Simulated scan of single mutants.
Amino acid sequence: MAHVPFPDLPADLRERAARIRLACFDVDGTLTDGRLWLDAEGRELKAFHIQDGMGLRLLEEHGVRVALVTARESAVVAARGRELRLSEVHVGIRDKRALLEQLCSKHGHTPAEAAMMGDDLVDLGALSIAGLAVAPANAHPWVKARVHWHTRTAGGEGAARELCDLILTAQGKAEAVLAGFLQ
């Protein structure tokens, strides 16, 4: 028996997800739990959920460009982006809305074809123009009140994977993803 993912999802949300060609993800609080770990020398450490990484790769492998976008200067984020072979990794970005507009223009998409996932105020500009604006379950309340959808799981605990799975499902690609792993 086949499992039907997202059975109670409103039709307008499915339609938004079906249009996505570019998926942008904030990092701290979205791909991580939002805590910053610093060692005695001030070097940054972050923990990433392995299922989120798989989801990001699956999007890219099935025709959806992925961008990591963080306001912080972070060698850790750059390294994670390289490890996942992501198309776009942007660190030190203060104006995420402007970057989202640039990425859409660069790749021939409209903002309606872009998803943005973010958890805090610095993400609101990009979230406000994205065709699919998403927040993790533990996002700041002001952000959660202004998105199209929020995940069941928290940032750093698989929230990004939920969005990836939603997009793949809405685009009719979930069965192809599964078939690739069942062979």
Rank of each mutant, 00 (worst) to 15 (best):
H3K: 11
F6P: 05
L9S: 09
A11M: 10
R14H: 03
E15R: 12
R16C: 02
A17I: 12
A17R: 07
I20K: 05
R21E: 13
R21P: 08
A23F: 00
F25N: 03
T30R: 07
T32P: 15
D33F: 01
D33P: 01
D33W: 00
G34E: 12
L36R: 11
R43I: 03
F48M: 07
H49Y: 15
G55K: 05
L56A: 08
L59M: 09
A71H: 12
A71C: 08
V77C: 10
G81Q: 09
E83T: 14
R85S: 11
S87Y: 00
H90V: 00
G92Q: 03
R97W: 02
R97D: 07
R97Q: 15
Q102M: 06
Q102P: 00
H107R: 02
T110M: 07
A115C: 03
A115W: 05
M116K: 04
G118W: 03
G118L: 06
L124T: 13
S128Y: 04
L132P: 11
A135G: 02
P136E: 05
H140E: 13
H140C: 07
H140A: 15
W142V: 11
V143K: 14
V147M: 09
W149A: 09
W149G: 13
T151V: 04
R152T: 14
R152D: 14
T153H: 10
G155R: 02
G158V: 10
A159P: 13
A159V: 04
A159I: 09
L166D: 02
Q171E: 08
E175G: 05
V177A: 00
V177T: 05
G180M: 08
F181E: 02
